[in-house]
Amino acid sequence: MENLIFISAFIQQANHILLGILPAAVIDFLPVAEKFIWCGFAAVGFAVLFNVPSRTLVFIGILGGLGGFTKFLLIRFGVSDVLAPFCGSAVIGLLSIPFAHYKHAPPPVFYIPALIPMIPGVFAYRMMLGMIKLVGNTQPSDYEQVLQSTINNGLKVLFIILGLSVGAVIPMLVTRRDSVKDLKASSFFDRRDD
């Protein structure tokens, strides 16, 4: 009898937790899911500006969306501002290879427009405002604080962009092939010498 009460209480408790947490979690992650759409649109916009072949447009949108989604999901879980875009661009780089095979276009056509939504525009803007302040301001009271935030934002910009371009070429760095044409899962670990 005591056991039954305990079990029913446990089930109630579990139910309560599920009902309480699940919708909240879903609502919590809706903004992250929404980034998929907007990053996708941004990638397609740049793809049109770069005059990509029309057959690749949809896939660039998907890639850009997935990269942005990965980045914001990781940031939501507390991953740093530099590591999260790196992981996003690694996803883009890995997926750009099957897309390149499928649509017969080189991987940069896919990954460059898809990476652009992740370029840290707001950090760059803050760095620039900081630099302008540093030029105009010689007051010792807040000079150090402005200098600190300017350097912090500038280094973030530098390392995020470095991470983006390394992440996108990870498949080539790992497999050591000259061209993605030779990239097959079966011969993943042997270096082609000719």
Binding site: E34, K35, W38, C39, F41, A42, A43, V44, G45, F46, V48, L49, G68, P117, G121, V122
Partner: peptide, 18 residues
């Protein structure tokens, strides 16, 4: 006109993401 519209949509998307 397609380039202008798509890139403008990208600009609006950037704004939404920020």
């Amino acid at each position: 006109i397609a380039v202008l519209l798509f890139v403008s949509l990208a600009g609006a998307s950037f704004c939404r993401v920020a």
